[in-house]
Design a protein around this nucleic acid. Structure first.
Lengths: 224, 224
DNA sequence: ACCTGAACACCGTTCAAGT
DNA sequence: ACCTGAACACCGTTCAAGT
C-alpha cells in the first residue's frame, strides 16, 4: 500500500517532499485505511516515500503527529445551518458531533480527546449555550445539560463501531437471541421476556431515541 | 518494582510458580499501578519472578491475557441491594456500572468492551429490564432506554479520568476561565456569558445530574 | 510438565553523516 | 536545510532446549 512503484532500491527523496500538512494528511489516510495501530513511523514514512527519520524534521515525536491529527480532525466539525428552532438546533449539533466521532473513531483513542478541550467541543458548546440562553434556561442547568449531551454522544460513538458490525451481520442477532435464550430463565426472566424483540434499533436509531429523550429533558427545563 | 529482592542473577523459578489466576491478578496490579501501556510481557513476567515465555504455557498470547483481565474486572460489577423502588434501583444500577468503569478505566481501552457482550452488561441489563417491566414500560421503549443509559454511563466514564484531573487541580479552572475569556466575545458570546459559573459540577455531580434527567425520561415513559 | 535462552521481526528514537 | 544509515533499547512471539 506504499505510494509509488517499487522497483529496485529507492532513490533519495527530493528536497521538498515533506511538510507538516502532507504528513498529517497521510497519517489520516493510514488511520482511516488500517486503524491507529497501523500508524507506525515506518509505515507512515513508506507511504510518504521517505525514511522514518525525515519525519523528525517536522514533528518532535510521534505524539506530536497524533496531536496534529487530532487538531485537523476536530476542525472538521460541521456547524449546522438553516435550523428552524433552538430545539432543532440542539438536535443537529449533537448529530454533527456524533457524526464527527463516528466518521473518525480514532478521535476517541487519542489522548488529546480526553485531556484537552478541543475545537469541536468549544464551537459546539458556544452554539449549545446560545440555544439554552434563548430557551431561558439558567447557567447551572445549561452547564449540566451540555455535559450530559456530550457524555451521551461520546458513549454512543464509543459503542458504535462494534455494534454497527452486529447490525450489518445478518446472522448476528439470530445468534445473539439464541445465546440469550440459552441463559437460565429463573436467573434472567426479564431478558427472556425482551429478547424476542431484539434488535429494536440500529445504531443510528438508538442515538436518535436517546437524543429525543434528552431534548424532552430540555423542554422540561425550559418550562420549569 | 519487580517482586522479591534483586541480588545476583535470578535463579530458575520453581515449578508451581504460575497459574492463570495469578497471572491475571498480577496483570491487573500492573495496569492499576502504571496503566495498560506498562503491561508488557517482560514487565508482567518480571513481577511474577519468571521469564516472559513462561506466560505462554497458560495463555496463547497477550491478547488472551487481556481478555481474561476483562472477564475478571467485569465480574466485579456489584449488584445493588435493598433498594426501595424501581426508580431508585435504576439509579443504583447505573451508579454501579459507572463506578466499575471509573475504578477500572482500562475496561474502556479493551477490545472486549466494544466487541462482546460482557458479564456486567448482561447482569445489569436483566435488572434494568425487570425495573422497566415493573414500571409498565413496553419492550421497545425499555430497549431504547437501556441503550441510552448505557451510552450515558460509558461517555461519563470515558471523560472522567481527564476531567477529574481538572477538578483536582486547584488552578485549572482559574486558567480555564481565563482562556475562555480570552476568546473573541463577538464569536463566543454565549460562552463568555456562562464561563464565570465554571465549574458548576464536579465529575460525580455531573453524572448525577444527567442520571436524574434520564430518570425523569423514565417517569414520562411510565406515565405515557 | 513447566520454565528458559536465543533469536526474529517489529517498534520509536538518538546521533552522526550524507547531499 | 533536509533527508538518511546505523544503532539502541524496547516490544510480542517462535522454536528448540533445558530441568
Amino acid at each position: 500500500m506504499s505510494s509509488g512503484t517499487n522497483d529496485g532500491p529507492r532513490r533519495r527523496a527530493p528536497r521538498g517532499t515533506l511538510n507538516r500538512d502532507l504528513i498529517v494528511a497521510t497519517a489520516i489516510k493510514v488511520i482511516d485505511a488500517d486503524g491507529l495501530d497501523a500508524l507506525t513511523t515506518r509505515r507512515l514514512s513508506d507511504d510518504l516515500g521517505v525514511r522514518p527519520m525525515a519525519l523528525y524534521k517536522y514533528f518532535a515525536d510521534k505524539d506530536a503527529i497524533l496531536r496534529a491529527v487530532a487538531e485537523e480532525l476536530f476542525g472538521r466539525f460541521e456547524m449546522p445551518e438553516r435550523v428552524p428552532s433552538d430545539r432543532e438546533m440542539l438536535r443537529q449539533l449533537m448529530r454533527s458531533y456524533f457524526r464527527l466521532l463516528v466518521d473518525h473513531p480514532v478521535l476517541l483513542q487519542l489522548d488529546a480527546f480526553r485531556d484537552e478541550t478541543n475545537n469541536a467541543e468549544i464551537r459546539s458548546a458556544e452554539a449549545l449555550y446560545a440555544c439554552f440562553k434563548a430557551l431561558g434556561i439558567d447557567h447551572r442547568e445549561a452547564i449540566g445539560l451540555v455535559a450530559t449531551f456530550v457524555r451521551f454522544v461520546v458513549g454512543s460513538a464509543t459503542l458504535y463501531p462494534g455494534r454497527r458490525k452486529w447490525d450489518e451481520d445478518p446472522d448476528h442477532w439470530k445468534r445473539q437471541r439464541q445465546q440469550l435464550s440459552a441463559l437460565p430463565p429463573e436467573v434472567y426472566p426479564a431478558i427472556h421476556d425482551v429478547t424476542p424483540d431484539f434488535p429494536a434499533f440500529n445504531q443510528e436509531e438508538v442515538f436518535e431515541f436517546g437524543l429525543e429523550k434528552l431534548l424532552c429533558a430540555v423542554d422540561a427545563a425550559a418550562r420549569g
